[in-house]
Design a protein around this nucleic acid. Sequence first.
DNA 1: TAATTTTTTTAGCTTTGACTAAATTTTATT
DNA 2: AATAAAATTTAGTCAAAGCTAAAAAAATTA
Lengths: 221, 221
Amino acid sequence: MLSSVEENYLKYIFQLSEYSVNGVVKTNDLAYKLEYSAASVTDMLKKLADKKLVSYKKYYGVSLTKSGQQIAVHVLRKHRLWETFLVKKLKFTWDKIHDIAEQLEHIQSDELIDKMDEYLGYPKFDPHGDPIPNKNGTISVPNVICLADAKLKKTYLLANVNDDSAAFLKYLNKIQLQLGDKLRILEKEEFDETIRIAVNEKQQYVISREAALNMFVKESK
Amino acid sequence: MLSSVEENYLKYIFQLSEYSVNGVVKTNDLAYKLEYSAASVTDMLKKLADKKLVSYKKYYGVSLTKSGQQIAVHVLRKHRLWETFLVKKLKFTWDKIHDIAEQLEHIQSDELIDKMDEYLGYPKFDPHGDPIPNKNGTISVPNVICLADAKLKKTYLLANVNDDSAAFLKYLNKIQLQLGDKLRILEKEEFDETIRIAVNEKQQYVISREAALNMFVKESK
DNA sequence: TAATTTTTTTAGCTTTGACTAAATTTTATT
DNA sequence: AATAAAATTTAGTCAAAGCTAAAAAAATTA
Ligand SMILES: [Mn+2]
Ligand SMILES: [Mn+2]
Ligand SMILES: [Mn+2]
Ligand SMILES: [Mn+2]
């Protein structure tokens, strides 16, 4: 049985490895994500390697082993099911749930999480549009692109947002943007890379590059 | 903000103080309850005293301060609301919930627990018949007596059971005893203090003293 | 290629919260 | 009251998981 701290390391290695070459994560990147010193991270990577949860090569980087990945995915599953519960059942708004789920994801009880999954009706996506791994650890990777890369004139549906900044989600609340909204790309400003969009063929907004990088869309048929 | 460990100390001091003189708890009793060495307990009591959560007098004992008691009651509130959720919503049986609630009671979010309370309809008792403190920390102490002290020939309702032994609750499951059942005291055996009861005017059972000490009843009108 | 900068690891320190063994205080028994 | 037993505290140790500063390795630049 792993500590919450170890579970967090595995979870973040998994998330960083999705955007890395060969699934290899650098010590400094992990340290930045965890908000720990690089020295602390090096220490822990050695311990996780002893437990065969990661393969770690000095000065090179770290990647998850099969069993490390299974645990990481299970933690993600717990996180996203809890977030779904908080919104669907307890009526939390999507900007308040991440920090609570960061705690709840470490509760140890397989029966609990399976009953929760059933209670929620086996949801496929969490309130931020992130896919929820199933009991076997399978994740359906949704086919989305970053709003920053969206094409001029085309129309998309907002499918996924980055959930770990409450400030960003509050901003979306303020301009009343939610998952499923139809976004038409009206203009892409070259100078500062801002994007002008029409939401549901009604309001228009200018979205900064910083915001667009946190928004993911799929093509609207 | 307190650690889970500190919260547990306060919770158990509170629970032991309910059955002690002047609310003073002895180091060894607390050590036994927490399954720690007495030396470890002494250490922690000094730390809690520094934080003004307990008053601790060497070789004499410990009791909760006002603020220590508030925290203890809040932890109990969380524990019992979570247990209620697990049974009412997730369909857990009452013998499986205590250990999970021991983890969940340390989740830090007032908004979460208040929304949970509302979601459950402000329940007054948990699945074991223990009273749930309200948001202000008020506990309605129910008027129950121990089954071991019940009077011959009288009829009672099962109102409360000790919840921290799954084995005991499984035994109640087996003989199909549940909260609210009508218990008539048919016979009290002096030799070994077993009690023969009729349940809902149907089945009869012989209850050992050990079991009776874990069951609490109220008078049936 | 050599020098410099950046990244990573090592070494040594800290806090939390356990433990055991020994010392002390309190309580019980002769 | 003296002694023995029980309860409690003190002293010293350990593991987990963080930290900073210094050393070493890798990457970049001159
Ligand atoms: Mn999240
Ligand atoms: Mn999410
Ligand atoms: Mn319980
Ligand atoms: Mn209970």
